[in-house]
């Protein structure tokens, strides 16, 4: 098990390095000079050259990359051009804002999605199954930003139940904060619930058709024991992989949800950074996002080792 974890960590680090390198290369092939954009049309050549040197943009790309990487490790994440501050001061609040949407949404969607999936699989071909599968299909086809607008229209504008948009840190005003988070969390969750329900259902059905389930039946076990002990444990194996892969997409969804609800998270920060060709900020944010995605993947992989004895015990 220890070797397995070490192997997984090593792999994640390698992948992370490739991610950063790719981002760096693409970012630096972008046409348009960020300094010129930052200084505006009235800038003189001297000014541009001066700032280019300050930000180190005159050096070879690879040197810049190594410098940036070293900075990441030592905690100097660089300076944002468009916000004119250190990125390290910019990020924490933004991350907290994003996490306060994504974490509740992750918890809700995993619990509800898996539960609905199990119910659909156990009652397969019944009306519950049709209902769950049908809703899941529609849920997966619904764009998050549109759903958000629909919610805003119905819950905020028509029924006046919740505030339209905005974000208040929970530490500042808890009730208001929660009220403002309800819609973003719901919107972000619905798509994932649909996705997890679908995946759980098919993973369960896959397992139910296997020989050892027949063995369990032949032993006279209760159907409930068979489903919840024998089938579910095996269905978790593919499911956990799917879960690990999809956490990243939840982060992708936040960009849109943050945009609709005007939440100052890293998603909306990324948009601003991209629009302003703020090299370093974009790189740092994508690094953080992939760090989260890879981190959750890693946790899931280790979890996987615990669920599947074929990996744990040789």
């Amino acid at each position: 098990m220890g070797r397995y974890i070490v192997k997984r960590v090593a792999q994640s680090v390698i992948v992370l390095l490739i991610v950063t390198l790719l981002i760096f290369l693409v970012m630096h092939s972008i046409p348009g000079n960020p300094i010129r954009l930052y200084l505006g049309d009235g800038a003189t050549t001297e000014q541009i050259e001066y700032y280019t040197e300050v930000f180190g943009f005159d050096q070879p790309v690879l040197v810049q990359y190594v410098k940036w990487l070293r900075g990441i490790v030592t905690g100097e994440w660089g300076r944002s051009i468009c916000f004119a501050t250190d990125i390290t001061t910019l990020l924490p609040d933004r991350i907290v804002a994003t996490l306060s949407v994504t974490i509740p949404s992750l918890v809700i969607s995993v619990i509800l999605g898996v539960l609905l999936g199990i119910i659909a699989a156990v009652k397969r071909n019944g009306w519950i199954d049709s209902l769950v599968s049908g809703c899941a299909n529609i849920g997966m086809a619904t764009p998050a930003f549109w759903l958000a607008i629909l919610f805003v229209y119905i819950l905020a504008l028509k029924c006046k139940l919740l505030p339209v948009q905005g974000y208040t840190p929970l530490t500042e005003d808890f009730t208001l904060g929660v009220r403002k988070l309800v819609m973003p969390v719901l919107v972000l969750s619905l798509g994932s619930i649909a996705y997890y329900a679908r995946q759980t259902r098919s993973a369960m059905l896959e397992v139910i058709n296997q020989d050892f389930i027949r063995t369990a039946r032949s032993k006279g076990l209760k159907e409930r024991t068979i489903m919840l002990v024998h089938a579910l444990h095996n269905a978790l194996i593919p499911l956990v992989t799917v879960l690990g892969m999809s956490i990243g997409n939840l982060l992708g969804g936040t960009v849109l949800v943050e945009q609709v609800f005007c939440i100052p998270g890293i998603g909306s920060l990324l948009l601003t950074a991209i629009l302003n060709v703020d090299y370093i900020l974009v790189q740092d944010i994508i690094l953080i996002m992939s760090l989260f995605a890879l981190g959750s993947n890693l946790i899931v992989d280790i979890l996987y080792g615990y669920i599947d004895p074929r990996i744990r015990v040789k």
């Binding site: 992948v15 490739i18 991610v19 997409n249 969804g253 994508i286 996002m289 890879l294 993947n297």
Partner: peptide
């Protein structure tokens, strides 16, 4: 491919 998968599709 793994590296590309680590970044969410929309992003």
């Amino acid at each position: 491919m793994d590296a590309m998968l680590a970044v969410p599709i929309v992003i």
